[in-house]
Design a protein around this nucleic acid. Structure first.
Lengths: 350, 350
DNA sequence: TTGTAGGCGTTATCAA
DNA sequence: TTGATAACGCCTACAA
């Protein structure tokens, strides 16, 4: 707590520099720099004087200027579609946690899933000389986006995505998670299992589809392609597709709702149609949310910790940036999922 | 699309500067600068050469270096408790929208509601020379935080908060929103109306409490202080307080659940106790969420657009930064709320 | 129309 | 131990 009246209070324009501090303390700018950077070899008396001057003026070293010298911004970019998606909010929190601890600034940016925006943001982070990037792009194989990523040429980790050109990628183990869910449903006697999801052109979507198919196959069952509705993560899409699925001649007996925003759509559709789960259809959702817990009956969910995903991505990125890991190396890090059993599925006679 | 093989592909270290571009184009650095800044008076032919060189090398001007000259970071900080709170995510999206459009970078940071973290983040943004700040502090009157805000001495707008020292503040009209909700309940015959909320020491909390009291008073009714549980926004708090309220000798007949995370707690508590709404208690929540819509029965909610809040905050901040508004001026901007009637309240005989 | 040089706020090297 | 001074990457008078 400063005893003296802080001069900064009277000088709103933050145009203070080392120069001012040096003058105020009666030393050279070099000395000031040494003091704030704790370079050994400064006389305690001088150090005190300088610290007093700093306190007095309310000066803070200009990080932008430091960065320009160190040619490191100590800033990490994180691009995803929309921060309002609770998944990304959680990842952000996790990543922020480890990055702040290491003195890095996390800057998030929403692309609305538009490739042009993704490219623009990539350029932006390149211009701002981010030290690295965490990326969740809409379509892994979009050439424009891939070019922009290459052009940015900085350490990166793909979040729930995987690039053809390789590199680090982190994500939940949706393959295993889906198999587990499907196995559970098959055990309950289900044979016609539908899946609503989005994210075409992403590893997540591939893993989920493959998980469904493989688990079915393991039980000698085939997936009816008509039960796969994989075009969008939007609530309205889930609403519509749930209706369509239930109107099928041979409707599914179980439904996998894979996407945070999908569940409200599914539930609304059921309600509108006067159907209920688990009586008319068994239900499993991805992402354990309030809605899954509070819905009545509560909904069986594939849970995984998105914050951990964020943490791991940040740590791996720092490993690259700080030279503990070869950025060229291709590696995949996976987070476990857990099937949380609740009351949304019922056994059927088959 | 570059025809030539991009040299940057082979030069991962982004150490290119104007110098390199100038050399490559056979001009001086001044010319390069003029070209990228569209300064009139450059021969088209030269301009072309320069642009070709830029494309060729894959160079992007270093924004940090530009900023150090312009002494403007084109960066805005936004501090709040936790990005996982959907309210802040929405505000972020809104603010990001207007800031990106104007070439500013929005940097969000979670403080976990800890004053020390708030102070640290304030210092951080000061060091990074943010052009302005949007602030949602935990306790408006914390002296340490207030000092840090003063020390940062930059344009700011308080989000859902209001400082004693004045300045711009934006927020939803919780006073009117609460009165409207209470008026509705009183009209249904309710006299014992409870309120669970957090945010002590913030304008939001004051507005809500005042709204409840004033509307009650307008009907010649008094608020039973025992029905006010205003200590936390945590789900567990709502769970516990709902139980306690219902166990009262004279339990409330209606409950205002004012906080996004509170509602799940309230619903769980009711379920645990075998009570249901609107039969045993009428229910109104703040923040229209999926949960409020999907819960069965659907829950009457006080809705307001958090994204607009973010947008307005950003616009007002830019007005200050770009000199269209005196930062010293104290002003309050309010967003309307709307009572969305659903099935969670019932008329009682009184 | 183009080039040169000084300055933005730091850090780091080299003398003193 | 401290002080000058040259970078860092860019912009912009001023000169050519």
């Amino acid at each position: 707590m400063p005893k003296k009246k802080n001069i900064a209070d009277r000088v709103p324009q933050n145009r203070l520099t080392v120069q001012d501090v040096a003058r105020h303390a009666g030393v050279s700018i070099g000395t000031v720099s040494r003091v704030i950077n704790n370079v050994p070899g400064v006389t305690p008396a001088v150090s005190m004087k300088v610290r007093a001057a700093i306190e007095d003026l309310g000066w803070t070293p200009n990080l932008a200027a430091q960065n320009i010298r160190s040619s490191s911004s100590r800033m990490i970019g994180f691009i995803f579609s929309d921060i309002r998606n609770s998944l990304y909010a959680r990842m952000t929190k996790g990543a922020e946690e480890v990055l702040t601890a290491k003195g890095y600034l996390l800057v998030t940016a929403s692309s609305d899933g538009k490739p042009e925006r993704e490219v623009a943001l990539l350029e932006l982070f390149k211009a701002r000389r981010a030290d690295g990037m965490i990326l969740t792009v809409e379509d892994e194989s979009n050439p424009l986006v891939n070019e922009a990523i290459a052009r940015a040429s900085m350490p990166r980790v793909m979040m729930e995505r995987e690039l053809a050109i390789g590199g680090t990628s982190v994500g939940a183990d949706h393959y295993r998670g889906t198999r587990q869910a499907v196995s559970y449903l098959i055990g309950l006697g289900h044979r016609r299992i539908a899946m609503i999801a989005g994210g075409r052109g992403t590893r997540v979507a591939r893993d989920r589809q493959r998980g469904l198919e493989d688990e079915m196959a393991a039980h000698g069952l085939a997936v009816d392609p008509d039960l796969l509705r994989l075009d969008s993560f939007a609530s309205e899409y889930a609403y519509r597709q749930t209706q369509l699925l239930l109107e099928l001649e041979q409707p599914p007996t179980a439904l996998l709702s894979f996407g945070v925003r999908l569940l409200p759509g599914v539930i609304s559709a059921l309600r509108t149609m006067g159907r209920s789960y688990p009586e008319d259809i068994s239900l499993i959702c991805s992402n354990d949310t309030d809605l899954a817990t509070i819905a009545s009956p509560a909904i069986t969910a594939i849970r995984y910790d998105a914050m951990t995903l964020g943490r791991v991505a940040a740590e791996t990125l720092l490993d690259q940036i700080e030279g503990r890991l070869d950025p060229e190396r291709t590696q995949r890090i996976e987070i476990v999922t857990e099937l949380v059993l609740r009351d949304s599925c019922r056994a059927i006679s088959g």
